[in-house]
Write a protein that binds this DNA or RNA. Sequence first.
DNA 1: TACTGTTATGCAATTATATGCATAAGGAAC
DNA 2: GTTCCTTATGCATATAATTGCATAACAGTA
Lengths: 179, 179
Amino acid sequence: MSLKHVILTLIHQAPSTGYEINKSFEQKIGYFWHASHQQVYQELAKLKKTEMLTCEHKPQTDKPDKKIYSITVKGRDELRKWLHQSLPEKKYKDILLVRLLSADLLPLDKLCEQIQKAAEFEQHRLDEFLHIQKQCYSDEQKKYLSALDKRLFINMRKGILLAEAELAWAKEALETLQN
Amino acid sequence: MSLKHVILTLIHQAPSTGYEINKSFEQKIGYFWHASHQQVYQELAKLKKTEMLTCEHKPQTDKPDKKIYSITVKGRDELRKWLHQSLPEKKYKDILLVRLLSADLLPLDKLCEQIQKAAEFEQHRLDEFLHIQKQCYSDEQKKYLSALDKRLFINMRKGILLAEAELAWAKEALETLQN
DNA sequence: TACTGTTATGCAATTATATGCATAAGGAAC
DNA sequence: GTTCCTTATGCATATAATTGCATAACAGTA
């Protein structure tokens, strides 16, 4: 439903290869959308078949050949249409919360360990975001952000706020469990 | 991967029918795990076939017949095994953040409308949680929580903290966009 | 020279989810 | 009396996502 549009969004920003799109998913985009490389290549093939994208073949001598995809008018129309649709309901999936429900089969210390580990992961995420914030968005820089940079800033802020909430929860949860 | 274990968790707590499990997903469980009724019935059939669950058929005269599922020893072992596995990485999917990236195809006012709508949904969620918190977890009551109630409390707290973070983000985002 | 990592693509098979439709009986509302 | 809601189950099909495997050339390193 949406991976299609995520990819269209990326290629709309700039023509790209599957490899580059995969890199985006591994790096920045990965914080708010997850996709494997197989999924990406399959989706690109589908988008080409339905004429949302065109593909230019770029042979290379030293490295494997590239396929550079560009968005078509049809693709841009589809993207615009999707952007105007109302947001589908969020589908929450939080394994840790499920595990809490059957913790009588999981010793308290093991459970706390899992919460601890999840917290460390979030801390790592948060640190990365905070680093970006420091580097790219000083109070001075924030005054003169372009429209695009504003949007990137907002996205990063969500990463920060959610990671902080996760961390606050983990702390509280550990205290309550071990009280 | 996990729906299986979510269902095992629920039936481990108490033998249930597919209908009851679906109710759980629509209500409380829905806040941290989403599943449709078709998915649930199919998964129950699979779990029965693989002998994780047994099924007792309860004919009823006034209403459609029930199938009451109970967890088997094999099912409980499977659940315990899963509980001890380390958590898989979270797979983030946030459509709103994707949409922010291609906002040049979406007028600012429409974008803000979508953020506003998402915020209203979160506010509704938050209100429900806060209501539960007020009803069930007064300062006095919190002192004497059973192990299970503690876990339920922790889950609810996550709902509250995350919803608050979403709301804080939405407010900030709207301010930045409209500055 | 063999191993590891990066660039670059993909197929095949399976599993997980979603979409649409179907049945059936009781009760409440209009 | 017909329409809608709740209880209770499910099938068939379609789409999305994961898992495992495969290819290939170069570059660095041990």
